[in-house]
């Protein structure tokens, strides 16, 4: 009984530690400035939507929302389309050939982004492409393709190989097998991969910071504009932060089973 009690005390402490920062940001976004900085902190306060009004009235931030949406959806869709083709092809090869391909794809994911962002930046400056959406979309698609391939391989591997044999005997061409058998059978995995790519792209900061221009800024970059020299506008900042992460928390919980898989794959087989 005492053991049980301590277990639940420990569990509460753990959950508090995990959830408190999230709670604190969300709660602060509903506070008036005088409540936000009160010491000792006020736990009960009069909620306000002022911070959200302020953020949503900010043209730059609203545009960043659109940018993030456009960039993450389109680059993820491209990456998943390309990734699905490649993953299908790779899963049909014999073990030896596969290992080589999978190792190569994994190696693409180890190099720091810096090493490839700098030359891309240099090119973009010369081409005058820094302020164009396609640059970000292309770069994110390029980053997401290896990830999509290795994740989709794990889903396609769950499909018994005999299905392809059966379809071949039944007279299906290779593309029909991919399109009519494999894609529908792995539909859940394909959607999960797409969501994970969107999640990653939406949250990504380094590439966005270096390769976006004034009119292509995504949300993580845009929010840093609240960190001004005059000081930090915590009210607006926490409201913006809440707006940025909320859609991803929802998406993330939708595909929670796949997240750990998505974040480890590749390495698992390395």
């Amino acid at each position: 009984m005492i053991k049980r009690f301590f277990f639940y005390v420990g569990l509460v402490v753990l959950l508090a530690a995990v959830l408190f920062p999230l709670y604190w940001v969300v709660v602060t976004s509903f506070k008036l400035p005088r409540d936000a900085f009160a010491i000792p902190p006020v736990w009960l306060f009069e909620p306000t939507l002022d911070n959200f009004r302020k953020v949503l009235a900010n043209q730059t931030f609203v545009r960043a929302f659109t940018n993030s949406f456009v960039v993450s959806i389109s680059s993820s869709a491209i990456a998943v389309a390309i990734g699905a083709l490649a993953a299908y092809g790779i899963t049909q090869q014999d073990a030896e050939k596969r290992r080589g391909q999978e190792k190569f794809i994994l190696s693409l994911r180890i190099a720091p982004a810096l090493v490839f962002v700098i030359p891309v930046y240099y090119f973009a400056v010369r081409l005058g492409a820094l302020n164009q959406h396609w640059l970000l979309i292309a770069v994110y698609a390029f980053i997401n393709v290896p990830f999509a391939i290795s994740l989709l391989i794990t889903f396609f591997d769950d499909i018994p190989r005999e299905l392809r044999d059966a379809a071949r005997v039944d007279g299906a061409r290779e593309f029909a097998i991919f399109w009519r058998i494999y894609l529908p059978a792995a539909r859940g995995g394909v959607v999960a991969t797409l969501i994970l790519c969107v999640l990653f792209t939406w949250n990504e900061f380094f590439v966005a910071l270096t390769l976006s221009g004034r009119s292509t800024q995504t949300l993580p970059v845009s929010i840093t504009s609240f960190l001004t020299f005059q000081g930090i506008q915590w009210g607006a900042l926490t409201a913006a932060a809440t707006l940025i992460m909320l859609p991803m928390l929802v998406l993330g919980i939708l595909v929670q089973g796949q997240i750990v898989r998505g974040m480890t794959l590749g390495s698992v087989k390395g």
Binding site: E162, D165, A166, A167, R180, P184
Partner: peptide
Amino acid sequence: ARERDVAMVFQSYALYPTMSVRENIGFP
């Protein structure tokens, strides 16, 4: 395989999981 005009029954049945029985049989 598709040009050999053979039909095959597999150990694991190899039914297409996303198709109904009617679609499975009609697939060839």
